[in-house]
């Protein structure tokens, strides 16, 4: 497991090294670009695009965690119980909403620009995380919560020593789904006025420039796969008992 972690770290570092090789990309992509087309996006370097993308995703993800996990926690406590039905119903219906459609649904409300994109990404990303949190926190094995109570744990100890660790697999699975969705949806976000790796893809698709499309598509695919593997690795490390 430690070896896997080191390999992942190496993969991340290697990818970032790769993203920094602006001239290398230009050279490689010129083979697929047709004549008199630019082989690489010129307004930003690939490195900048990657950081824009990651910024967008990580910021939305941070919001998701700050709001989503406490929300799931709140509605599974006795004082939040009245809202449990509302939240779980909303989350279930919300998952049927296509993420890209949601991205554009917020356009008329918040206008063009990064704010709209972040809010849309955040709201959609909220759904899997809240769902995972709800699932985990509401399916604590009854014998264990009985034993915890009988041991003399107070509510706070039950939360930290029993419920949170027991819910962790579901929470992490939810976070992973949220992260992957956000990375993917953020690729379309340039249409509502942000930067990121979607910029060269969309520019390339509209000018029929394969090189630009690949400049965005390859890194974003790499980042998505690595992110997925990283969270899966984290699940393995943190949940050794399951």
């Amino acid at each position: 497991m430690r070896r896997q972690g080191l390999l992942l770290l190496a993969a991340w570092l290697g990818s970032f090294w790769l993203f920094a090789q602006q001239s290398g990309w230009k050279h490689a992509l010129s083979y697929v670009a047709s004549k008199n087309q630019t082989p690489i996006f010129e307004r930003n370097t690939l490195w900048e695009l990657v950081w824009q993308h990651l910024n967008l995703c990580l910021f939305s993800m941070l919001l998701v965690m700050i709001i989503g996990l406490p929300l799931a926690l709140f509605v599974t406590r006795s004082y939040g119980k009245p809202f449990l039905g509302l939240v779980s119903n909303t989350v279930n219906i919300g998952q049927i909403f296509p993420p890209t459609a949601v991205l554009f649904l917020f356009l008329p409300i918040f206008g063009f620009g990064p704010t709209a994109a972040i809010i849309a990404l955040f709201i959609y990303g909220l759904l899997p995380t809240v769902r995972g949190g709800l699932l985990g926190l509401s399916t604590i094995p009854e014998d264990q919560s009985n034993a915890a109570l009988g041991c003399g744990m107070n509510a706070w100890q039950i939360l930290w020593r029993l419920e949170f660790p027991q819910a962790l697999p579901s929470i992490l699975a939810g976070l992973r789904t949220s992260l992957i969705l956000i990375i993917a949806t953020a690729t379309v976000a340039p249409l509502v006025g942000t930067g990121g790796l979607g910029v060269p893809i969309i520019a390339g698709l509209s000018t029929n420039n394969v090189a630009l499309v690949l400049e965005g598509a390859l890194p974003v695919a790499l980042i998505a796969v690595l992110a997925d593997m990283t969270v899966r690795w984290l699940e393995q490390v943190l949940v050794r008992w399951a």
């Binding site: 915890a148 041991c151 003399g152 020593r161 008992w241």
Partner: peptide, 16 residues
Amino acid sequence: RLGIGYVIQSIGLFSH
């Protein structure tokens, strides 16, 4: 409860 030992049929060991 801290002063009372408690054993149940379903055991309820903390699986994590």
